[in-house]
Design a protein around this nucleic acid. Structure first.
Lengths: 213, 213
DNA sequence: GGTAAATAATGACCAAGGTCATTTTTGGGG
DNA sequence: CCCCAAAAATGACCTTGGTCATTATTTACC
């Protein structure tokens, strides 16, 4: 159990800067619930963790959980936002000399994230389609990522790297498909390969094509 | 409610050919449950259908459901087996003059299946990752389909259509990825395009490659 | 036809996510 | 310090998927 945050009590909180006691308690309880949930998910899995266990660990009543989150899946939604936000930030500010290097950097970033987050990353992948809220968010994110790929592809065309007649919308979907399916394969086929390596092998195949010249 | 099957009663059932009364009742009850479930799933969705409703419609007690199926998801497993079995049968016996035509035939077949099965196909896609049993089955099926693609790719190489240095295992995963991701897009992006057309556009892109020559 | 054993139907029961009326805590004003 | 209104915690309760002891039916044997 995480120790209750023992912040120094400020006697005269500046309004708007340091929130009221009530606000601090709220933030603290929310944080306790979130941490307890994430820790339990990582340790025992999502389906195996009950809300009662989460609130026990946060030292709160079961009903309190629902004052802070819409349901069990809302914890995952928050976690998904964090992880995906980092990816999008990285992708949006990414600079690399060639199209291929941009893609390679993205794949590497995701692969690193997956390694670092461990069981939680797997959990996210497994639950995305099971939770309506997560799914909806993922569909939105997917579209944003498609937009990023389209930008990279257009830049690649400008630079003379890619065929000028390439349909960027379709190509973006192919790339996103490689990314997503490899994540799924990685999780559901038992992490039997390096995610980034597999992604790049597929990507190079798509760059070069399958046909005999 | 489907009328109870009023099969002609055969007075002296040949043993082994026509099963005993008990066997017939069993088969009939199982069939009633399965049909009731599928009809309700198609009409109101999977999550919105309760087991109580299914057994009410089948005119049986709730507990009886579990004598015939391991749980609600077992109905979907059976349906998945039917649909996937048809696809695999088709793919295994498929004959077509070129690599591209083979792929096109497969994509067309799936697209037709999706159209024909309607809400049930969508349901299958949506529930695959939510149900452990379905997921496990889907992973197995995925591997079988990879095998088929590898065969097609090797044949394509033999015929001089495809680059001889192509890594068939990777290429198969790319193709399977196009198929699977397009199914997911089709369902989760609101069926806004023709599944087979989108698959073939992606496929042609992969055949020809993205690089400028 | 009668009876016992095998087989199968059934609904009370349990667990867990989620709801909500009730109780408790908090903070402002006198 | 006391009181009250607003805010928040809480656990009894509801639903539904799934379990299982009990009850009912079928079959085999005489």
């Amino acid at each position: 159990m995480p120790p209750a945050l023992t912040k120094v009590e400020i006697k005269a909180p500046l309004p708007g800067v340091m929130p009221s006691r009530r606000e601090r308690q709220k933030a603290d309880r929310r944080e306790r619930i979130y941490r307890a949930a994430i820790e339990l998910f990582a340790a025992k899995g999502y389906g195996e963790t009950t809300i009662q266990e989460i609130t026990d660990r946060a030292d709160l009543g079961k009903g309190t959980f629902f004052n802070y989150f819409d349901g069990k899946e809302a914890i995952l939604v928050e976690y998904y936002r964090k992880v995906t936000g980092e990816f999008l930030d990285y992708a949006r500010t990414l600079k690399a000399p060639t199209f291929r290097k941009k893609i390679a950097a993205l794949m590497r970033f995701s692969s690193d994230t997956a390694e670092r987050e461990g069981a939680l990353f797997e959990l996210l992948i497994r639950e995305i389609f099971a939770s309506p809220a997560l799914l909806q968010l993922d569909v939105q994110t997917y579209q944003e990522i498609l937009g990023l790929y389209i930008r990279f592809i257009e830049e690649g065309k400008q630079a003379g790297e890619l065929r000028p007649d390439l349909d960027a919308a379709i190509a973006a979907r192919v790339l996103a498909g490689i990314y997503n399916l490899t994540c799924l394969e990685w999780v559901f086929l038992g992490k039997a390969f390096s995610m980034a390596d597999m992604m790049m092998k597929k990507f190079d195949l798509v760059l070069n094509g399958m046909m005999k010249r």
